[in-house]
């Protein structure tokens, strides 16, 4: 292992009323890595992210986060504590605060003391202003900063949310289908943003768009039916028979009955 591990998920199992959405899934992330998590619908990719950020509590397994504040098993923490530890999550549908302006969204996302007393006394300092302005420039929404975020287009909302995630300064960023529903042009711009993000932190991206994934030369983890199917570079993954089978349906079953994990 080249760089130290920042997150290690060991045998994580998540079950919903007996249905095991994720089964004994293990995932090791190196610090500074960009990892894509792919797999067909219902493979448990999103649930895996949910388990890491505390949205669901795993029925078994550990999720160890080796962050600034030492090693923590995040499965025992509440969502806001996990966020404060340094794990940021972006959901699939843009979830910005529609009643707040673009600027205000960024202001409350900014890394800061998040207690009631602290926010009561917080004032926008010059340094804060500069951070927000720099972010607005990066996501290209300077001239819309006073607009209510609910009025933004779908793509703009996604960028605003990515901007919020960056200001939150997480050590690990979990992105769920950041380019879903975007036009080609918007997808390109999001790709650029992603390259910017990856330079400073560890990122996990759940993605369906294979073209988009191919643009990044990085490690890919394939999940299928809640389990780890294959891990490796995009080329390795694409050459894998089981992966092809999962993605292309049951076509190969006739002459390859052994490879299936189903």
């Amino acid at each position: 292992m080249k760089s130290p591990s920042i997150l290690s998920c060991q045998k994580v199992t998540v079950s919903f009323d007996g249905f095991k959405a994720v089964q004994e899934m293990s995932l090791e992330l190196a610090s500074g890595e960009l990892r894509f998590l792919i797999g067909p619908n219902g493979a448990g990719k999103t649930t895996m992210l949910d388990a890491i950020c505390g949205k669901v509590k795993p029925a078994g397994g550990v999720v160890e986060f080796h962050g600034r504040k030492g090693t923590v098993d995040v499965t025992r923490r509440k969502e806001h504590e996990i966020a404060q530890l340094g794990i940021g999550r972006k959901f699939q549908t843009p979830s910005i605060f529609s009643g707040l302006t673009v600027e205000e969204n960024l202001e409350i996302a900014m890394a800061q003391n998040r207690g009631v007393w602290a926010t009561l006394r917080a004032a926008m300092t010059k340094a804060d202003r500069e951070r927000v302005d720099a972010e607005l420039e990066l996501i290209g929404l300077e001239d819309k900063k006073r607009l209510r975020a609910g009025l933004l287009s779908h793509g703009e909302k996604q960028w605003l949310e990515i901007g919020m995630m960056l200001l939150q300064e997480p050590e690990i960023l979990l992105l769920d289908e950041p380019v879903a529903g975007m036009t080609d042009k918007e997808t390109d711009k999001t790709g650029e943003l992603l390259r910017e993000i990856v330079r400073k932190r560890t990122v996990v991206v759940v993605e369906h768009d294979m073209e988009f994934v191919r643009n990044f030369a990085s490690k890919v983890t394939v999940m299928h039916e809640g389990k780890l199917l294959k891990e490796g570079s995009m080329d390795e993954v694409q050459r894998d028979d089981r992966v092809a089978e999962v993605y292309l349906g049951r076509k190969r079953r006739d002459y390859d009955a052994v490879g299936s994990t189903a």
């Binding site: 969502e79 806001h80 966020a83 940021g88 979830s95 529609s98 707040l100 998040r114 919020m164 939150q168």
Partner: peptide, 11 residues
């Protein structure tokens, strides 16, 4: 606007 979302911001 989004109580759960504020949790994932750390509030």
């Amino acid at each position: 606007d989004g109580e759960n979302r504020t949790r994932f911001l750390g509030y």
